[in-house]
Computed example of a mutant assay.
Amino acid sequence: MQHHIKTVEDLRWLMAHTGGFRSGYVTDVQMSKRRLFDEETGRDVLADTTVTVTIRYQLRGMVRVAKLVMSGVTDFSIFEQEGADCSSLSIIQAECTAGRLRFWFDPQGELYAVCEEAHLEEVAAPLLPVHPLPELARWTFQGHSSDGPTVSWLLTELEQAGIPCSWVAAKKRRASDSLMRWEGDLTPDSESGDDRSRAVRVMVYGSLDGEGFGIVLRALGEQDRRVSRVLAVLADRITQRYSGTCLVGTTMIPGREWEYWRARNGRAPE
């Protein structure tokens, strides 16, 4: 989900959609400056300052990771005294005055920004119950198309990759889980009998806003090379077929850049 923020109406939408990020916390703050070369003076001049704040929060039964990109920043401050923690949010405040957006991320104004416009990008997934097996890795993808992957498609892709798996559907969830489409476990066929102590739990759900789908892959059980490969192959095949955004921890990665990111980091999702 992406939304451009420029006006008072946009700010009202932001506060209503996020609940003001109540009880969330800031996981990352980045600032970048763009400079241009001025031929008349022979110097580089500041052209734009961008500040990006990543926030993790929960609302309406969903875990959300939001990236607020503020461009045209003219005033920015972050101040944290020893022993203090300004990353925890109660509820942010925002206003639009004289064509400028102002954000106070905490009551004391220790994290504060003034900008010309902002852009919100967000990935949301249902709250997941604690699984009895250890969770070794998690990968989330938010797709733009209305139709997401099917069980048969996942099984076919794994067969072609040389790691055939069996599928067992999970128990039906509560009727109130209206976004849920289907959920179950993929287990490599080499696992003996009905042993399901090592598997990839797959959950597919509908988009919170408009068209789209979400999918969460979780590697469960003891450390196992084949299970890790199942998760990695599925992540690669999903990003190749569908456009969208990946989420690893609180890091958002455009789907088209996923394989490059994984190769650069040299590891599977965590």
Rank of each mutant, 00 (worst) to 15 (best):
F76I: 11
S145W: 13
D147G: 08
L247W: 02
D28F: 05
L46C: 12
G266P: 13
R241N: 04
L68Q: 05
L217H: 00
E183A: 00
M252C: 04
I215C: 00
A232Y: 02
S207Y: 02
D38K: 10
A66E: 10
L101Q: 02
R34M: 10
L234T: 02
F76T: 13
E95H: 10
A16Q: 10
G99V: 13
E80I: 09
S197Y: 13
K6C: 08
P134T: 02
T50H: 08
V53E: 04
L14K: 06
R138N: 01
R100L: 10
D195F: 12
W13V: 06
A125S: 07
P149E: 06
M70G: 07
T54R: 04
S178E: 10
Q160N: 12
W104S: 15
V248E: 01
P188K: 08
L111I: 08
Y112V: 12
S87V: 04
Y205L: 00
L208G: 09
R218Q: 00
A263G: 13
L101N: 03
T150R: 02
Q240H: 06
M180K: 03
D48H: 12
F141I: 00
A137H: 01
N265K: 08
D28S: 05
L155A: 13
P126K: 01
F79P: 15
S88K: 15
K6N: 14
A118Y: 03
S145D: 11
S166N: 15
C86R: 14
F37L: 06
K6R: 07
T250V: 07
A113R: 09
H144C: 14
V45G: 15
L46Y: 09
L101S: 03
Q93N: 05
V114G: 12
Y57S: 14
F213M: 01
V45A: 09
E270T: 10
T150K: 04
L136F: 07
R226I: 08
T140K: 00
G184C: 06
L136A: 08
R237E: 02
A47G: 08
S190V: 14
R100C: 05
K33S: 11
S90L: 10
E39L: 07
P129W: 00
W153K: 05
V53G: 03
Y205Q: 01
A66G: 11
E95F: 09
E122A: 06
G255I: 02
L247A: 03
S166V: 09
Y57L: 07
Y205C: 01
Q2T: 13
C86V: 15
W13P: 04
F76A: 06
E122W: 05
A84C: 09
G221W: 02
I78T: 12
T239M: 02
G244L: 04
P126G: 02
G162W: 07
G109Q: 13
R60I: 09
A232M: 05
